[in-house]
Design a protein around this nucleic acid. Structure first.
Length: 250
DNA sequence: AAAGCGGGGTT
DNA sequence: AACCCAGCTTT
């Protein structure tokens, strides 16, 4: 008796379909970046500070030089600020050198060389906001924390039909909620990386490759190119959560 | 909520 | 010329 070689996968769940599309695409096309070869919180946070509003191509050589010169948080702590800034200032946003020095001081002197182990604690470090904290938590600590950078905003905004460029607090709140909801359990590190590559390489700001997109069946952007109709419209809703007080949103 | 920070690349 | 880039802090 001949066995059926394939099993059917009916992609009628927009959220699970999105996860599978992004992860499947990432397996084939994901980038091999220097800061992905480590889980050292120090190396990860150095890369994330450098990547603030700065392209991967610009950061990569500077990151390599920085990590060679200051391989550990102790090495950075003992270095002169001027020597640090000589490497980081050419990236722009020249406060980054001081932030990294202040982070090193906080970890070495105030925390005995032990890194914060939660998003909330990470956010107390200078230059570390919610995005960077989520990145370090997921990439270095293995915590299922969401991230919401410019790539993820664009990808989720298009897929869920949200005006992601709107800076209103409520819009950003919804995007964060979706960024959290979409993370597959136990896979935040890989999935968050996948989301960013997906946004940087396929679902790009200027000319997204909608015809190659494995998630386009459900995408609420309807094809950014030529105003195509959404193939599979869907809606989402935000559920109240127990641990949050109900007066948070106005 | 809005401004300020910034060099470097793309359209 | 305008837009974009693994955002955060200050006003």
């Amino acid at each position: 008796m001949k066995r059926v070689k394939y099993r059917a996968a009916v992609d009628d769940d927009p959220l699970e379909g999105f996860r599978e599309a992004v992860l499947g695409w990432y397996d084939q096309h994901g980038r091999n970046l220097p800061w992905r070869r480590t889980r050292d919180p120090y190396a990860i946070i150095v890369s994330e500070i450098m990547l603030h509003q700065t392209t991967v191509a610009t950061v990569a050589p500077v990151y390599e030089e920085f990590m060679q010169r200051f391989p550990t948080v102790q090495a950075l702590h003992e270095a002169a600020l001027e020597e640090v800034k000589a490497i980081t200032d050419p990236l722009g946003y020249k406060v980054r050198g001081r932030w990294l020095k202040d982070i090193a001081r906080a970890v070495v002197e105030e925390r005995g060389g032990i890194w914060p182990d939660s998003v909330e604690e990470l956010m107390t470090l200078p230059g570390v906001g919610r995005y960077t904290a989520g990145a370090v938590a997921s990439f270095a600590l293995g915590i299922d924390a969401p991230i919401l950078d410019t790539n993820v905003k664009r990808v989720l905004g298009r897929y869920f039909g949200i005006d992601y460029k709107n800076s209103r607090a409520e819009t950003q709140h919804v995007l964060w909620a979706l960024a959290e909801a979409v993370v597959p359990e136990g896979q935040a590190s890989r999935f968050n990386q996948a989301l960013m590559d997906f946004g940087a390489m396929l679902c790009t700001a200027r000319k997204p490759l909608c015809l190659l997109c494995p998630a386009r069946v459900h995408c609420q952007s309807g094809g950014v190119e030529a105003g195509q109709a959404a193939e599979a419209p869907f809606t989402y809703r935000l559920l109240p959560r127990d641990e949050e007080s109900s007066d948070s949103a106005s």
